[in-house]
Write a protein that binds this DNA or RNA. Structure first.
Lengths: 358, 358
DNA sequence: ACGGTCCACTAAACCGGTTTGCTAAACCGC
DNA sequence: GCGGTTTAGCAAACCGGTTTAGTGGACCGT
């Protein structure tokens, strides 16, 4: 008994059906080029032989892989369990499926993003959360593959999908200010790798600018000492808030840069005996599905996460067609505040200056 | 100005470096076969030319794609937002990355799973939640690709990863019984496509057997009328519980077949003015990360979701090597109950028979 | 000076499809 | 019955790598 009888190839089918390889190919791809009877005969033989065209050979010949890649600096296991990412990927998947494209996740291979990019067989790449000056991106730029940058400031002529982070953050802070809050803690997302703190491409930097713009209006400063960072997960949020608390901070409101972290803060606050929103107001970012199911439901900044994914695919696809289209290529989405139950009037006991008549 | 200057191929590098294509290939793959100086020279030329071996051509020649596929009957956008699936995928990703493999999701292409399988260029497939008699699986079987079935009963000689669904379910029901509960509602996962209700491969059927085995011991029957189905999501859970309530059911405890659904039930119960666990006990399944963050924390059946993913990859990988290994090939994981805050003694008002002395 | 080993490298086949250019035959109108 | 068009299918080149078998030269011992 042989090991796994070799799969039938196009040549086998051709021989068996008494036609050329080309004819078999036509029978599947452009049947109108062949006599209808012949097509039927060839297809018959093919199915008898359990023939299925080798996708790899086909990709090579067509020079299309029918796959688009999602590039991220984090390992896949953190990616998949990150609900923001899941939502974004769902958007990508929807648009990709519609266009008949598969999607492939590209993440550091044995620590190297560049190596991972080289190994990936895709027609285009959606890079999320990577600054324009990340080595992975420069590599991408040289590779000649069409690509789109998500959530990172970019060179002016690069395709990109952005979101009004600063405006959203500002709206969040203004909401809290209006409720009388003056003591904040900001829970930010740590940079993908060390040494990017000054990087203006970093989301945390952009949102922080928004928070600060709002507080500056009323003469309150958000110092670096009230900013704590962590990974964008529930655990990250828990740890970050505990760190803030232990370092002596006693905020009346927390500005979290992701809903996942906000949920973590919610949890941590409860552990510390604080009632939300009575003792502490919390505001998230993203407006994920879960945000409406927490207790209390989360006030948060909405961004069109799923739509971003869909838009990215569209940009990639049209990038493939018209090389240098005159289109703007950069698309910025709006954000807006969604007020739910996790924010309230500042508690009286702590409110030093109750001067504004809200 | 040309459009996108063609990428350098191995032939270009060979010509430029004055060597054969083979030498270039060796320089990258088996440098020890070449003089060290030559290797350096070739690599130099290659990097000058921004040469990067075409992954597709390489796949074809090696007849390996370095990719493993995850096959599912649901669309990707529902997959990604399903936390159980995310957790499982994270496991797969971890093990795959370690082995230097990429992962690709294979889901129905324009409605056809078979077509999707044909288009997928992978070295092996992990099929989750598909019964052994699903057309996609029979196709897979014929294709000659190594594959592993997850969460579905299978032919005896097929590679598979299972979990003790029945035992876990039984433990859950026994816990509630011990707390005095007698009126249950079961919230199950609807089958992937209609007409599989009788399918013993269907998770819901297996878990239901477990619940029933436990209640049968005390002479209580779980009729089909107290079983409501829905998609395995929070929304699914909310809708299912509302349906049960509207149809007049007034359970003291809910057995949900997924944590996501259990969270939905939690939410729905709150909307109906029921306190958990005082008025209603809820028990989930999976023990996802979020289960510990809900309010109250969720009592649930733990299954090693991530480990299942890792084990699946291992099974695929060794399946590639030793074709017909004498190994059992089927691996069943244990489950166990994790008691947290969402279950409590049955409320006295409704407890008809307070005869057991718990 | 000769056969044997190694070393460093090459030529060519191969992976399994797609696509281009061409031809032979059928069909066409007049 | 002749030039022109259509139809049906074929041969061969091609996609861009890997891999096998083989070759020429240096080195070596006798």
């Amino acid at each position: 008994m042989e090991q796994s009888t070799r799969r039938a190839t196009i040549a086998d089918v051709a021989r068996e059906a008494g036609v050329s390889k080309a004819a078999v190919s036509f029978a599947f791809n452009t049947p109108e080029r062949l006599n209808a009877d012949t097509v039927l005969r060839i297809r018959g033989v093919a199915s008898d032989l359990d023939y299925r065209p080798d996708p790899v050979a086909r990709m090579l010949a067509q020079r299309r892989t029918w796959t688009i890649g999602i590039l991220t600096p984090q390992a896949l296991d953190v990616i998949f369990t990150n609900p923001y990412f899941a939502e974004f990927s769902a958007g990508v998947a929807t648009a990709a499926e519609e266009a008949g494209m598969a999607i492939q996740f590209i993440s550091p291979l044995h620590g190297s993003l560049v190596r991972a990019v080289d190994r990936a067989s895709v027609d285009g790449i959606i890079a999320v959360g990577l600054g324009a000056e990340h080595p992975g991106i420069s590599h991408l730029r040289r590779s000649g593959l069409p690509y789109v940058l998500i959530d990172s400031t970019t060179l002016p002529d690069e395709r990109a999908i952005l979101v009004d982070d600063e405006g959203g953050a500002r709206a969040a802070a203004e909401h809290l200010i209006q409720l009388g809050h003056r003591q904040f803690v900001v829970v930010g997302i740590e940079p993908p790798s060390a040494g990017h703190e000054g990087d203006s491409a970093w989301v945390t930097a952009r949102r922080l600018r928004g928070y600060r713009a709002a507080t500056a209006d009323i003469g309150v400063a958000i110092g670096d000492d009230v900013v704590v960072l962590g990974p964008a997960s529930m655990d990250g949020g828990i740890a970050a808030f505990h760190r803030a608390w232990e370092s002596g901070l006693r905020p009346t409101a927390v500005l979290a840069m992701s809903d996942a972290m906000a949920i973590g803060v919610l949890r941590a606050a409860r552990e510390l005996g604080l009632r939300v929103p009575t003792d502490l107001s919390i505001i998230g970012f993203d407006n994920l599905d879960i945000a409406q199911y927490t207790d209390p439901p989360l006030t948060t900044v909405h961004q069109p996460t799923r739509e971003k994914g869909e838009a990215a695919v569209r940009l990639i696809l049209e990038g493939g067609r018209t090389r240098n289209s005159p289109e703007p290529a950069q698309h910025q989405f709006d954000t807006h505040l969604v007020v739910r139950g996790s924010t309230a009037q500042v508690p009286h006991v702590r409110q030093e200056v109750a001067d504004d008549g809200t």
